[in-house]
Amino acid sequence: MAKLTVQDLKKIKEDATKSIYLRGEKGNIRVIIHMGTCGIAAGAREVMTALMEEMAQNDYSHIRVMASGCMGLCSSEPNVTVEIEEQSPIVYQHVNANKMRQIFKRHVLMGEVQTDFALAKM
């Protein structure tokens, strides 16, 4: 291992910060997959898998993925909520793996709400 300089120290900090970002107070985008029994029965696992694959494509340390419980809208599961800082959260319904990829690329990354699948603004 080469001896560090102050520059190297800064570089390590940058890299390592990514691996502990989940533990921080803030992340400015949250994608929540509602994984109640109903959601899982309707295919929420596949949605989660698709999302995690997208997440692995790049360094998205500002985006946090969370699994949460059923929203009470079992008939429209799988549901996914996208929360972008300072905007109202958007709930998507009947999401599948492909829709998830589209939501991720268009809404989460580019900010375009995919009104076709959106259930409501919250």
């Binding site: 533990r23 995690m52 694959e53 997440m55 692995a56 998205y60 946090r64 993925v65 969370m66 699994a67």
Partner: peptide, 10 residues
């Protein structure tokens, strides 16, 4: 590799 979504701080 997939991305870690949850960390369990035990």
């Amino acid at each position: 590799m997939k991305k870690i979504r949850t960390q369990l701080m035990l």
